[in-house]
């Protein structure tokens, strides 16, 4: 599903003043071609030609979806987007018309494109999002807006909402590959090792060394294990922070039964399986900040941060 990732490559080609319909065709064709290429890349030796009829069908479906998505934008959004993408109007010119600045118009275009992607995906599947939270979450993902994603707690929503989890796949793939954030899906024992390796690698990249790396990896190991033991699956997000100062944040989320007594779970020796009960309180001691939110039946989120300390990691 790299269809949407190709958008940036397509845009320059659309500066030609094509008719709207032509642009839709071009977009559909290119997205489709790109998609097919990705799908077929792994079977280079397979001489089977893709079925033409099927492709025509796919193309017309995609075109319908784009039409539908464009229709769902507001008049103003559609007008500006088309003026820019189809007629090649520069942002500065559009800004002058609207009595605004080029930056504001560019930001607006970016938001519109993000919305268009979301509406396209929804239209392609002929579905309406099941909850009120879906659209804001998808939009935040589509625009790659991290602050907004945190505000709407996008990661948790993706765990809860199957529809969004599926729809968001192409949205998560697009844009420049972020090298300061990692997601590790946790479902079984080996994932615990993957998660702590990922955390260690990312932290090393940020300048963490020695003991700090090991403490971080150990804490990640504990929270990831809790997911495997109690919730079967969840995910761990590891993110580099620059503000308020350099650090690394780990967020572990699951959709498990939740922790009935959070206070007790943070005490040494509290254990519901044959562990030592040092998992959560231990992780808290290994990190600088630690926060646990849990609701019975609605899973658990552990957020913890380690700050970069040049003195401490010598």
């Amino acid at each position: 599903m790299r269809v949407l990732a190709a958008e940036d490559r397509i845009e320059p080609g659309m500066i030609e003043p094509y008719a709207i319909a032509t642009v839709r065709n071009v977009m559909a064709t290119m997205w489709r071609r790109d998609d097919r290429e990705v799908r077929n890349r792994h079977r280079v030796f397979d001489p089977t030609q893709p079925d033409d009829v099927e492709n025509v069908l796919v193309a017309s479906e995609e075109q319908l979806a784009i039409n539908e998505a464009l229709r769902r934008l507001t008049d103003r959004e559609r007008q500006v987007l088309l003026a820019h993408e189809v007629s090649g109007a520069a942002t500065q010119m559009l800004a002058d018309e609207a009595g605004s600045t080029a930056g504001a118009v560019a930001a607006q275009l970016k938001r519109t494109r993000a919305r268009l992607r979301v509406e396209y995906l929804l239209a392609l599947d002929h579905i309406e999002p099941p909850t009120d939270r879906c659209r804001p979450v998808l939009l935040a993902l589509s625009s790659a807006d991290r602050r907004r994603q945190r505000e709407v707690d996008a990661a948790r929503h993706l765990l809860e909402c199957d529809v969004c989890a599926r729809l968001s796949e192409p949205l998560l793939d697009r844009g420049p590959v972020r090298d300061d954030v990692l997601h590790v899906t946790i479902g079984a024992d080996p994932d615990i090792v993957s998660a702590r390796r990922a955390a260690r690698d990312l932290a090393a990249q940020a300048g963490f060394t020695g003991t700090d790396l090991t403490m971080l990896a150990t804490a990640v190991s504990e929270v990831a294990r809790n997911i495997v033991r109690f919730a079967d699956n969840g995910d761990v997000t590891i993110e580099l922070l620059e503000r308020p100062r350099r650090g690394i944040r780990v967020v572990a989320r699951d959709m498990g039964p939740g922790i009935a007594d959070v206070e007790a779970a943070l005490q040494d020796g509290y254990s519901t399986y044959s562990g030592l009960g040092l998992g959560l309180p231990g992780a808290r001691r290994l990190m600088d900040e630690f926060n646990l939110v849990s609701e019975a039946g609605h899973g658990t989120t552990v957020s913890m941060t380690k700050w970069f300390d040049p003195k401490g990691s010598a």
């Binding site: 003991t211 090991t214 403490m215 990896a217 150990t218 504990e222 040494d268 030592l276 040092l278 309180p281 231990g282 992780a283 001691r285 290994l286």
Partner: peptide
């Protein structure tokens, strides 16, 4: 070091 901090 991490083991001591963890309480192990």
């Amino acid at each position: 070091f991490a083991m001591v901090r963890l309480g192990m």
